[in-house]
Amino acid sequence: MLRSYLRLALFALGLLVGVQVPGYINDYSKRVDAHLLESEQSLQGFRETAKRFFKGDMVALVAHYQASDDPVMQSDAKSVNTLVMRADLLKTESQAMHGPWYQQVWHLSTAADSQLLEETYNAYTFQVLLVPEAIAWGIACALLLAWVIELLLVTIVGLLGGGNDRRVRDRHWR
């Protein structure tokens, strides 16, 4: 009886953890879009200058600043180059986060920006979304967690020699 309650508790824990996944993905995506908007606004003046003098080529604008003898212009070249690189990174992140759900999960798991992940995690508040994606994630995580823990416990008991009694085996698999 206690084992059944433990299984239910484990399933519930997996369910609650699983429903967090879509909320976290959504928060990360919104954070990326907000940073991208801010980045684009900070580059707006430089983009207008690049349009006017370099046919919109930001790389040419940065190269022009770097080639200048004026140390102020050279310093600005570093700043503008940093802004351009950040905007490019945020555009890539935004494109990845506007793809299909499996692409979003893969991107967050393997290639997401660590600074943005940390910001999202620090600002994240646990939530229970009742949308189909959250329900599906919750059930999938609950089943996976319950299955992994059950498999681990059965393996440990088997390695320790427990469950060799026929009555125990029969009761366990009934």
Rank of each mutant, 00 (worst) to 15 (best):
E38T: 11
A9E: 01
S4F: 15
I25F: 04
S75Y: 00
W147H: 10
T110N: 07
T92M: 04
L10M: 00
N122G: 08
L129M: 03
S109F: 00
V59T: 11
M85K: 13
E38M: 12
L83W: 05
S114K: 12
A146C: 15
R166E: 03
T49K: 09
L143S: 08
P132R: 10
D33S: 15
V72T: 10
L61E: 05
G163Y: 03
V59N: 10
H172A: 14
L144T: 03
Q104E: 06
Q66E: 07
V84K: 06
W101M: 10
A146D: 14
D76M: 11
L144Q: 05
L16E: 05
Q127S: 11
G56F: 15
A123M: 13
Q104K: 03
S68M: 00
G23E: 11
F53E: 06
L61Q: 10
P22S: 13
N81F: 01
Q41Y: 05
D165G: 04
E38A: 14
A67M: 10
Y28V: 08
Q127I: 03
N122M: 08
S42N: 07
S79Q: 10
S42H: 06
S75H: 04
V157Q: 02
S68N: 01
A87C: 03
D69C: 09
L36H: 12
E118L: 02
A140S: 05
T155W: 04
Y65L: 05
Y102P: 15
L151C: 09
E133A: 15
L36P: 11
V168Q: 04
G162T: 00
R174V: 13
S114R: 09
A142K: 12
V72I: 15
